[in-house]
Design a protein around this nucleic acid. Structure first.
Lengths: 278, 278
DNA sequence: GTTCCGCATGAATCGATAG
DNA sequence: ACTATCGATTCATGCGGAA
């Protein structure tokens, strides 16, 4: 059966109500961060963020299968010299809503925004919060194991200090950094720290997160034919990756501009897939 | 003047009251994590953790200089399949107490303890929460600069060959000013992600952090002759590093065993320092 | 065809200036 | 006093043009 990619235009708070309950295997999304992207999303004030998000997370809880997982990519910004606390408040409120806060992965951004400030360094990481409905959920750990090829072994012998750090980021797109520990084995399990670069200047559009990010979580939490949902689709990275990986997906986007752009990209990609089968 | 290392035996909640207010430049500590290390510290239950810590953080707020910084190394453990929320609750409560939550650094542990669970990967990171009394605080960023990446290196190499000679002939015109800025800089500022290995050395303490961790923050937030405090001294890593870096320090430890061990180590080290001067 | 170099560009943050 | 906008700061990355 062909893979379905269902793209919908509208406010996810409303559109989500159209989806049946217990129908999604993985929700992977990166909502607009508080007080950012004002031009495109209207900007949610940090003080109002939790209040704004909770009705949406309630719908997400409804549509997620009991065995499914919700991965939320978010990072609080600095307000008045302090880190905002809305992400922590959101976690606490979502737990009251019925979510389990299972894990917090760290996305270590290799190329973060430059800048110099008197009392702060560059912010090089974001949160990837894992939420679940039940303690038992689907997780396919073997799918994200890091292969330890021969090249890694040979390169380890004569590594300069600079090469060491560079080498780490090349192994399996940033996973499995402790090379020397795992030399004896073929594959290693990753950790809860992901070391990836942002794809900053793509030709037509710049995605908020690199393809490797949704790809990793789709591998980890779904199998082929499963359903992936991104309620804040944006440039459609999650859905395109899902399609390429043989997963059905649903994407919701509030901006017509993004919606049409993703629609067009999907048509191109689906045509490619069709032709490759003929 | 000789560097003072003041080690005290007792419960820090009480001992801290002996210290004068506004007297400490940096507090760096790793308190017992909730419900962990039961054998050595009696284990604080996650539900009671905030309640237990707040009187201590109140004393810390009192003894810290207005220009000082408090760095708290902590990580919530997994309870019943979920991450505990006591760290987030602690941050929210400490802000009510008057602390500013300035930043959250990530310690990415290079070689974390191996292990495999059905629904979880190895935990390879810990939080380093930075709290301050004021928006203005002492920070010596140059002390922790790191070597630059490859791009800058290759660029520098090329600059020195093509543009350097031209620069010399036009001194004073301002033409080569940018170039000399680049030439002078072989180091870049770090980010808020620290990538350090854990030390697996056989210290008689269950959760020793590597020396590089306190060393980095002592460099960043203090100068020689400043005062560093670790209210949960443990094996005394913070104080030993401070001594080696020419900082005065105070350490408080509740266990006699640790207290005497650190006392002895300090005597040895101070004798070394004394003899090297003679 | 390779390799190399130049350049634009980011979920950023601060401080100053303006309404 | 309090919010909105703007310029300056700065580095890893990928692309396109050049050698």
């Amino acid at each position: 059966m062909a893979i379905q990619t269902d793209i919908r235009l509208g406010d996810c708070k409303e559109v989500l109500k159209e989806l049946p309950e217990n129908s999604v295997d993985l929700i992977f999304t990166s909502p607009p961060y508080a007080d950012q992207r004002k031009k495109t999303y209207g900007g949610i004030h940090p003080d109002k963020y939790v209040e704004w998000f909770l009705p949406i997370s309630a719908e997400l809880l409804r549509v997620l299968k009991p065995s499914g997982t919700f991965v939320l990519n978010i990072k609080e910004k600095v307000v008045n010299g302090e880190r905002s606390t809305y992400v922590m408040e959101l976690i606490l409120e979502m737990r009251k809503q019925g979510w389990l806060w299972t894990e917090e992965f760290i996305w270590h951004k290799k190329n973060c925004y430059p800048g110099k400030w008197p009392n702060r360094f560059r912010d090089a990481w974001e949160r990837l919060l894992q939420f679940n409905k039940n303690k038992k959920f689907n997780m396919y750990q073997e799918a994200v194991m890091v292969p330890m090829g021969d090249w890694a072994k040979s390169r380890l012998k004569n590594l300069s200090e600079t090469d060491k750090s560079r080498d780490e980021s090349k192994v399996g797109s940033g996973f499995g950094k402790n090379i020397s520990n795992w030399l004896a084995r073929d594959k290693a399990y990753p950790t809860n720290v992901l070391h990836l670069a942002t794809e900053c200047s793509n030709k037509n559009h710049s995605a908020a997160f690199p393809e490797a990010l949704p790809k990793w979580f789709i591998k980890l939490f779904t199998r082929e034919g499963d359903v992936v949902l991104d309620p804040f689709m944006g440039s459609g990275t999650t859905n395109l990756v899902a399609l390429n990986m043989g997963r059905n997906s649903i994407g919701i986007e509030i901006l017509e501009e993004h919606y049409h752009m993703v629609k067009q990209q999907l048509n191109t990609r689906q045509l490619q897939l069709f032709e490759s089968k003929v």
